[in-house]
Nucleic acid binder design. Sequence first.
DNA 1: ATTCTAACA
DNA 2: TGTTAGTA
Length: 137
Amino acid sequence: MGDEIRRNMALFPIGIVMKLTDLTARQIRYYEQHGLVMPARTSGNQRLFSFNDVERLLEIKSLIEKGVNIAGIKQVMNPVSKESEEATVITPQTESKRRELTDLQLHRLLKQQLLERRPGRTSLIQGQLSRFYNNKP
DNA sequence: ATTCTAACA
DNA sequence: TGTTAGTA
């Protein structure tokens, strides 16, 4: 499976990724600080993103738009480590199953958060999401 | 011209 | 998150 090396190949600088994802440099760097993506670095310390990195950022963007915050995203997205990505063989089957599971986890997470909203634990949802279940805009 | 880190009238 | 300063 030499296609993985292509997907994990460090190719584009943050400027390109901004156009590809419609995310600000601030957001992209912020998500990296929280371990949501691990772009490679050039010898000059500049970030170089792979296709996989861009796809992850798009997924993150999608979740953010659904009202999920960083904590929530960390729980529903599979962790990224250079090693696991290169070692994990991703067949079309495992890929689709990964997304299925992610959606189920997301739905479960959202319902869980909206129901057992206990004092003390910080919400994984960023306010607006309640509109998908409660009042209608 | 771009990107990076750090910091906040 | 935006934005800006001072670099590399």
